[in-house]
C-alpha cells in the first residue's frame, strides 16, 4: 500500500487537530515527508501481534495514593512570572467564545 496515503488535505487536518499553523510551503514539504516516514513505519504491519497485550509502561505500576495534605503553595507572583500577559493577578488569555 505504498504511495500517497497522506494528501495536503490530511496535513491540513492534522495541523488543525494539533493546533499548529503551517505555511503553504511547509504543508507541501510535510505532505512529502509524512508519506516517506509512514511508508517506513509500514514494516510493523508484518508482525503478528494477535495475542500480545500492549505495553504502555515497562514497570509493573500500580496506582499510588497519598494523603491529600496541603503544602506551601507557590505565590501568585511566582506563578505569573512566566506569563507574557497578565491583568489584576490573572493570566490573560485570548477570547474563547
Amino acid at each position: 500500500m505504498k504511495g500517497k496515503r497522506i494528501t495536503r488535505d490530511t496535513v491540513e487536518h492534522i495541523a488543525w487537530l494539533a493546533h499548529i499553523e503551517l505555511s503553504d510551503e511547509e504543508k507541501n514539504l510535510l505532505t512529502e515527508q509524512f508519506n516517506k516516514i509512514l511508508d517506513y513505519f509500514e514494516v510493523i504491519d508484518e508482525v503478528d501481534t494477535e495475542n500480545v497485550p500492549p505495553t504502555y509502561h515497562v514497570l509493573d505500576l500500580v496506582n499510588i495514593f497519598r494523603d491529600d495534605m496541603p503544602e506551601n503553595p507557590m505565590s501568585r507572583e511566582e506563578a505569573l512570572r512566566n506569563a507574557s500577559e497578565k491583568e489584576d493577578g490573572f493570566f490573560k488569555a485570548p477570547r474563547i467564545v
Binding site: 492534522i14 487537530l17 509524512f34 516516514i37 510493523i44 508482525v47 501481534t49 505495553t55 504502555y56
Partner: peptide
C-alpha cells in the same frame, strides 16, 4: 503532528497500539 495522526480516529490501533504490542514482544 505525526503523533497526532498516529493517535487519531482510525489510526490509533494501526499505529499506536500496534507499536505498544511490538514493545511487549
Amino acid at each position: 503532528m505525526l503523533g497526532t495522526y498516529a493517535l487519531s480516529a482510525g489510526y490509533y490501533n494501526r499505529y499506536y497500539i500496534k507499536a505498544l504490542k511490538i514493545r511487549a514482544l
